[in-house]
Design a protein around this nucleic acid. Structure first.
Lengths: 110, 110
DNA sequence: AGCCTGTTTTGACGTCTGTCAAGCTAGAGA
DNA sequence: TCTCTAGCTTGACAGACGTCAAAACAGGCT
């Protein structure tokens, strides 16, 4: 089934789609996408370093982080005064498997 | 930059995020995600074959297809009576590059 | 021309979402 | 215990979203 299609994507039933769509949805907001990329670029990141990167209130950032957390994309842990966020790699792998393509060879073009 | 992070993701500026988020957003609805996977599983697909797979009105399916089209994820072409939809592989490549992971080697687990 | 089928557009409606201000909770330190 | 800082929760509000019915548009057929 993956031999002829332009992409190695298999049709999805309603249940599968309902399970995975929330992850895409969570990444579908520019602020959350940036948050995600910031967190994913390092082993872990403190909220105190994320918030000042945006022209948004603390509560708003907190809200977006909650959405990412509930989508299963990140984990958070309080250590003393600060809260640290970390990517859940298995979530990324799930998404990547969906877009199952020769990504490693394709140039990260525009 | 990709050597140490758990994921080969680079932090994104606001502009980049604003350009890419709409693609994720488009895939963030279960109906559209299924539509996308159906279209991507074959070279091209007729609306007349997509619509009956859902418990939704024709206009609603048409609306979702339009969202996918405007996000740059699919192309449509009218041929005679029917309209055919096809995936735009470069869009998928863009998303895949973001989730830049060893997708080809990683098992398509749960 | 007129009609029939397939698809998109328009208009309307209820729900969901992103945002902020205000208030609350958790931990550190005096 | 009191206070200060970091972060989260709540409540409210404007705007966006998913859906459908009705109407419009496009092609084929008679």
């Amino acid at each position: 089934m993956a031999c002829c299609a332009p992409l190695a994507v298999r049709p999805m039933d309603a249940e599968q789609a309902a399970g995975i769509a929330p992850m895409f949805k969570a990444l579908g907001d520019p602020v959350r996408l940036r948050l995600m990329s910031m967190i994913a670029s390092v082993p872990e990141m403190c909220v105190c370093d994320l918030t000042p990167a945006f022209d948004l209130s603390g509560p708003t950032i907190s809200h977006h982080l909650k959405v990412l957390r509930e989508a299963g994309l990140v984990d958070s842990e309080r250590r003393g005064t600060w809260v640290w966020y970390r990517v859940r790699p298995e979530a990324f792998r799930r998404l990547g498997a969906l877009l199952d393509l020769p990504a490693t060879t394709a140039p990260a073009d525009a």
